[in-house]
Design a protein around this nucleic acid. Structure first.
Lengths: 256, 256
DNA sequence: CGTGCTGTTGAGGACGATCAATGACGGTGG
DNA sequence: CCACCGTCATTGATCGTCCTCAACAGCACG
């Protein structure tokens, strides 16, 4: 097992959830606790494992929250290659859509980027909490909207930006999102292939882009991993303006 | 005024809303009527006009629903070009995010593709209806998720598909979405530039792609407008599988 | 009956994909 | 402890798609 992303495993679910719900306008500790309490079952997933996919159908009438590790939503292209639509960080309700759109035929798979630790919530408990704590429902709705925000920006980023800025932008976003849940590592737990699949580049060109970023001093030359040495430079290359993330408190230095 | 898209103007809001809410799992006519009743003000927008943008801020503490016509969400690229993220059809709550994420700094603009007819709803009425009719809130949450579905598919489509399939796919989606609200026109109310901005292609290449589609018999040769003459051929070129739209009843012939 | 936007055509060039091969590292088993 | 093996990273060369620039045609509207 690689040790990539070890940092994202050392996480306390309660802390992460509290932070995330604060972002979603829930200050009330009782409501956060109510959410934590309905996570009654757990499971792990090894790096590169499919958490849910066509082959591994998810447990029926239950939904998954990511407690530790990094995961991703992806779709398979017709040529078999993986297209990563978004990365997921601890504190995320991964498949609420399955709960709210039970007939969804979206063909999305959830994959583990690093080793992950997951919580399982029964639909019945979700339904109860939505009734008992309407604010939780609103917060989750908000989080659905934030996902949309991220997707829209990614769409913009992928559609017209050249590889260098595109990759830089993608990396900036991941740094900010990690920072937002209290992880301020500079080493991202991705392989170049992961990033290529998320940036819509071939692995070969991805590698050349990484080397370009290294030569600009934005990424580390010494590490095989994706280690950001100069986030400010990276943000500049990307013209990164993180305000689309709609975080109540964007970490300083991340808006254009 | 161009007559492009005249069909989408001849629409009864009540019918469209009923259809859309049925898709969102609301069968109850009372709830639909409750939504219709809180649309107390209206306005029009001319083709190409910005409904909301940085320059035209939206009316405060109120949200917009599209009643007739076609609109689009777009972002400006740094080079000034317009990037269309999604098209909007009648029956859409256009900017719920502003209501739920009041601090959103997403820099999204809403533009009119054709002449549009819009309804305005006060936040206070939205808040009331969410309390009185929790199902309406759920339905709107679902619609947020469906938007996400569409965005994810678009991301996939734009990132790796070549121009021909990409444009074909985009057009197929619009046909299906129009059909779903009862408009089965074959003439789409877009200019080639509109489609280029949505497909992430230069207008020049868009034009060449359109001609290619014409030469395959998928689009009309005789019309300046984008007129689909052979939807099946278009779907084949696109490898279109509309199931991602998660429509309860996908019009026949639209799944691979 | 012009004026502007949209559509059309041609030529050249840039960016990124693909193919192919090699290197480097981590994990595994002898 | 070392040899092996698979995955990931790296490099070179070629090719195709799509962009850009530039010019012109045609339709729609005033």
């Amino acid at each position: 097992m690689s040790t990539r992303g070890a940092d994202v495993l050392d996480i306390d679910p309660a802390t992460v959830f509290a932070a995330r719900f604060r972002h979603l306008n829930i200050e009330d500790g009782n409501e956060v606790n109510a959410v934590l309490r309905i996570i009654r079952r757990h499971r792990g997933a090894r790096r590169d494992e499919d958490v849910t996919s066509d082959a591994n159908p998810p447990p029926p009438r239950s939904t998954i929250v990511l407690l530790a590790g990094v995961a991703c939503w992806y779709k398979r292209r017709e040529d078999g290659r993986r297209h990563i639509l978004d990365f997921q960080y601890p504190g995320t309700f991964c498949d609420l859509q399955r709960c709210l759109l039970p007939d969804a035929r979206d063909f999305l798979s959830l994959g583990a980027i690093t080793d992950c630790y997951l919580g399982i919530i029964d639909y019945s408990d979700i339904e109860k909490i939505l009734v008992q704590h309407p604010h939780v429902g609103l917060a989750l709705w908000r989080s659905t909207m934030l996902d949309g925000s991220i997707l829209r920006e990614r769409l913009l980023n992928m559609t017209y930006r050249p590889a260098l800025a595109r990759v830089a932008h993608l990396l900036c976003e991941q740094l900010v999102r990690l920072e937002a849940i209290g992880i301020s590592t500079r080493t991202l737990p991705f392989t170049q292939i992961d990033v290529a699949d998320a940036a819509g580049l071939s692995p070969v060109h991805m590698n050349r882009t990484v080397q370009m970023l290294r030569s600009y001093g934005a990424l580390s030359r010494d590490s095989r991993a994706i280690e950001v040495t100069n986030a400010q430079k990276l943000a500049k290359i990307a013209s990164f303006d993180g305000r689309y993330l709609n975080m109540p408190a964007l970490p300083p230095g991340w808006n254009a």
